[in-house]
Design a protein around this nucleic acid. Sequence first.
DNA 1: CGGCTGATGATCT
DNA 2: GATCATCAGCCGG
Length: 223
Amino acid sequence: MSSQSPIVAAPPEHVVRRIRRLRRGELPCDAVELARYLIGKSVVREFTLGSAARRIAGRVVETEAYIPGDAAAHAFIGPTPRNRSLFLERGHAYVYFCYGMHYMLNVSAESVGIGAGVLIRAIEPIEGIDLIERRRGTKRLLDLARGPGRVAEALRIGPRLDGIDLCAPGPLWLGTSVRGSDAIGTSVRIGITKEAHRLLRFYERGSPFVSGPKGLSREKNFL
DNA sequence: CGGCTGATGATCT
DNA sequence: GATCATCAGCCGG
């Protein structure tokens, strides 16, 4: 596989329509387990464009867990106005602004009052690809949502979605997987300096939609 | 393909 | 004033 266009086909519309919203009870009540669980699941964005209802959906292929007591986690310093969504019951969105220009989507983990989350680092676009291309300003499929900043831009996620329930009907929710997922690889997390040795990044093995240095997503990381 | 860097602003010390 | 859970663009091999 080189720099040529990848052999990846989005599922046809009738398959995509089968996505069912995940109930909160289906989400593991543990950030690490949740991070693994979310690989292969769907993220669905619903919004109106002009007067038309539109939908964008993707398949999660890469996550990172930020666990209680983790110095690299935003929740580590305790609740603040910025990170309060991390302390919500599992399955809520924590959206924050980083590096002055990117938003990032996390799914709160654990139970109420415990600050933990799962960063969605990459998704494979499966529905509304034309809308994503327009928003992202590129037609390169692999660049549409590879990396957490790109995920948020692809899904039109901004500060207004911070704190919303991802297990309820609304503009953004988690759904079942549209296709069986491959084995899950593990590695250190990307872009942090504290707690850098912890193996809390998870990704779908072999997926070209996964972000980060190639060496982090190789065979050797499969346990 | 890999490595480097400037952009750009909220949050916290 | 430093520190970011980043990205696009540019440069070299």
